[in-house]
Design a protein around this nucleic acid. Structure first.
Lengths: 205, 205
DNA sequence: GAGTTGGTTGACCGGGTAGTCAGTTCACTG
DNA sequence: CAGTGAACTGACTACCCGGTCAACCAACTC
């Protein structure tokens, strides 16, 4: 029997998968990859440990799935907002503000995102190659804006890839402080601080 | 019997401590805290596992010791160089260049430093409270320069603590790329890139 | 060279967890 | 309502690793 083009089996699978993924996100966020146990994820999802292994091959695979999920959503949301912006200043602002907005709505995912990117830089990521891509897609978004800005004379001349990385990492760490220590401060202030810092630097005039 | 005011016992203890610490630094750098095992550290140091526990209370304590060591040396070196600089621009430059120089000479320590600071931000540090201090001492160094610069009209007005953190983290991530992916590029270039970015921002003029 | 002292060793213990699989449940079918 | 099998369970295995400690040297003393 099928409903709306999906068999019962598919519906159940989808439901369980989502249920386990959500639990995993919470536990991984709280405990980190090593600290999280499959038992605790199963408990949080309200299923037995064995069930987790019916839907995900291994702990690592489960972790990756929850990471991929979140990063793809982030990328799409930010890319859409940037597409709406007209000039490079607005696009850069959208890049920053979009991230702050997304993670304000996805607090717990931020911990996973942050630690995994730190590890990526360090070469100790659980997900080296699978994840390098996701990083580069985002960096490309930013590099495009910077290159455009220089062509248009709106930005001074600098090495684009290096600077894109600086900005990218700057946003990530600013986000870390906002999300993890910001005590619910609304994102307008840090967004402005980051944008001003990037745009104007700290020098007078 | 004593030689140069130190008993034989003290000499041996000092030697062993240094030997184990150095091995630990290498292994922690390569594998991270969880990935490193006391067995492998002992092997690298050329002693038995039990011996490690004669000189350090626990794995955690050993990790902390290797961390403290390096961070204190870094702090002193940078503080000294900043003291030599005259105006706030030179001091800021010394803060950046000093770090690049120190870690160019202490590659493997950087991995430990970097991951532990990332974790500190995340609240998953192995060394939360002991380490917060070290962070704050460094941040204070930077905040002092910024406050001075604003008073003197050399810097535009901004929130000092927030901006100090931005700069601090910016340097850390730039260092990460330089040390871990830079392929031995000499540090002059990234130092200039970071300094210019901080001082002038990316906007034209 | 027997005795003493103190640094060193590595087999062992206990606790913890990723992953497995034989057994159970239960919705659905004929 | 008996039969079937897909979904689920959780006790169990195999392994790993931090930390301990009784036994083992080796240097030094008398």
């Amino acid at each position: 029997m099928t409903v709306a083009g999906r068999t019962k089996k598919e519906v159940i699978q989808e439901f369980r998968t989502a249920e386990i993924l959500e639990a995993a996100r919470g536990v991984f966020a709280e405990k980190g990859f090593e600290g999280a146990t499959i038992d605790s994820i199963a408990l949080a999802a309200g299923v037995a440990k064995g069930t987790v292994y019916l839907y995900f091959e291994s702990k690592r695979e489960l972790f990756l799935a929850s990471l991929r999920d979140g990063v793809c959503a982030l990328h799409e949301e930010v890319a859409a907002q940037m597409a709406n912006a007209e000039n490079c200043e607005a696009k850069l602002h959208a890049f920053i503000a979009g991230r702050f907005l997304y993670f304000s709505r996805n607090h717990e995912f931020f911990r996973i995102y942050y630690t995994e990117f730190s590890r990526l830089i360090c070469g100790t990521a659980s997900a080296q190659p699978e994840f390098q891509d996701l990083y580069e897609r985002q960096a490309a978004l930013l590099e495009g804006v910077l290159a455009q800005g220089i062509r248009e004379g709106r930005l001074r001349e600098f090495e684009v890839p290096r600077t894109a990385r600086l900005i990218y990492d700057l946003i990530r760490t600013a986000l870390a402080h906002h999300i993890l220590h910001g005590g619910g401060e609304e994102p307008g202030k840090p967004v402005r601080a980051v944008f001003d810092f990037v745009w104007k630097g700290i020098g007078a005039q």
